[in-house]
Design a protein around this nucleic acid. Sequence first.
DNA 1: TTTCAACACGAAAACGTTAGAGTTGGTGTT
DNA 2: AACACCAACTCTAACGTTTTCGTGTTGAAA
Lengths: 339, 339
Amino acid sequence: MKRKITLKQIAKELDVSVSTVSKALKDSSEISVDTKEKIKAFAKLYNYKPNNIALSLKNRKTKTIGIIIPEIVHHFFTTVIRGIEHVANEKGYNVIICLSNNSFDKEVLNLEFLANGSTDGFIMSVAKETQQKQDYHHIKEVISQGMPVVMFDRVIDEVICDKVVISDKHGAFEAVQYLIDLQCKKIALISTVDYVSVGKLRTEGYCEALMSNDYPIDESLILKIEDVDHSQEEIEVFLKDKDIDAVFAVNEQFAVNAIKALTKLGKKVPDDVSVIGFTDGVVSKSFIPSLSTVNQHGEDMGAKAAHLLIERLENETEEQSFQTAILDTSLIIRDSVKN
Amino acid sequence: MKRKITLKQIAKELDVSVSTVSKALKDSSEISVDTKEKIKAFAKLYNYKPNNIALSLKNRKTKTIGIIIPEIVHHFFTTVIRGIEHVANEKGYNVIICLSNNSFDKEVLNLEFLANGSTDGFIMSVAKETQQKQDYHHIKEVISQGMPVVMFDRVIDEVICDKVVISDKHGAFEAVQYLIDLQCKKIALISTVDYVSVGKLRTEGYCEALMSNDYPIDESLILKIEDVDHSQEEIEVFLKDKDIDAVFAVNEQFAVNAIKALTKLGKKVPDDVSVIGFTDGVVSKSFIPSLSTVNQHGEDMGAKAAHLLIERLENETEEQSFQTAILDTSLIIRDSVKN
DNA sequence: TTTCAACACGAAAACGTTAGAGTTGGTGTT
DNA sequence: AACACCAACTCTAACGTTTTCGTGTTGAAA
């Protein structure tokens, strides 16, 4: 099988040294114009392109950044990737994506792979299982070995690195406040279990909004879902016979399932019950009624993370302190709330 | 800044040669048990892990496969990625994902990057712009240089390599046949412009189904959309005052938009008009009425592509001929067709 | 005591590239 | 004629590994 041509082969063919070829192709003034032209022509003919791996080894940098996310079939993460990718390419970096599938072990493997020379640094959102185990030694390890890491969305407080988060709490607060302003009196919350950091924060925002309006916090109006795959059933049971006039859900799926459940129970959205979700995905726009959501601006998040990482990569000398960028959310009001 | 420890540093610290360290860590019988233990302990302490880049250079293989897709914020592609990733990891390969954003130039850059040593081979779905330009020299180039390439979904007939496609035509045929069996008489088609290969094939399936049932092909019932971003408006105009009882759409978005347009026009889905889409995405399941679709089995597709590629990578000696795997679709009937 | 295998390790080359430090051979100056 | 200088190269080391081929030291058999 044919292989890509190398400097050595060109050198041999043209009976010059490897360094002459290398320099000629870089248009060095050390080489005569004649030779340069000859070499360039030959290289072009055989479509010579320097081998990335060799360059990476020599330069001790790969110009590649890694991304570790829990799941790819997920609109939010893909928008983040798009944001990262955009900025990275602009700055001459390429992108490797690894999936943890929310598994701790896989995350460890990914981390090892990315840290062993394949990338200059990476951007990650930790796996659910990792958050549950609260075992972050693998992340701390690579950081201590000098790998720049940026965390986004699901971040770990006790790991010291750059971070990008949205103001989950504030986003939730605003959504609930909006419902309160609509004169909703009984606002249910559909959230995740507390070890998922964002679920916890959004729950806090919900509670704070209630409290600051002197609403009571009624635990019977709060549902925390563990098993995402069977959320539909859980939500149906939860909403049955509940006297509520609004639902705030911490993600898109829960919001959609809530609307379906409400419809099944004979309640009209938004006339009887207003619903606001979190995360603006494809479904939100298409759904009927279209879903009001707290928009997370995934692409901005990715872009910010990429900027932070590249900034650190390119200024390795100056030891800047780590920062946590907090991005604003915005409330998108569509048809699932009354007006 | 600290750097990862290398064999050389370990060797220096323990006052042995680099080769001894290397051998000791591989548990070679050439090295005495004492020395091995000492070296292993030291390596473990400093968390030595071999540098991937150096290994890749030495072995002339990276154990990495590349993926080039037009767009990541797209449910179908993410399912394909998941399928690829799953198989790849199982076989000890990692995955690099590059996005072409449907741009020809970006695709060329991605290809160059992946072909210059970064990966052992790759899997791609070509950009829309590339299909439009019909310029495939970049793909042929890398193939001629010995890079194994597998194409999926949007494949190019004139490029010779392994391919994985679904039976687009047959999938469309089945969907339309289903509508015909429901006694639908006037079936509209909402497709893309013809240079998108899948759009063309699905259109052919639609036509064949009609013909084989002796239905006339009425051009006025066929809409080919160029500008996906404004499909909603186009579809509304198209469906206005059309006397139809079914719609077959070549993707999920068009199907959803068709239902919305029909609803706006006062027609009920599925009572007045049945709708079937293509591609089973998140929206299909959530939508009300839930969408009947031709399921593309993206994950299977990715898995198949990965198998083909790895097969070729690991049997480089035997020159097998190229194959095109054709995967079946399956019709998922939900609430958007009458029963 | 010589010889020889076994043992434990080291040196060097190779993967493909680049950059700085040599090495030619020729020209120009005094 | 001696020297310096310059153009146009080549050599070498380095990035981090692995692996083949030495090589020096032991201990034992002859």
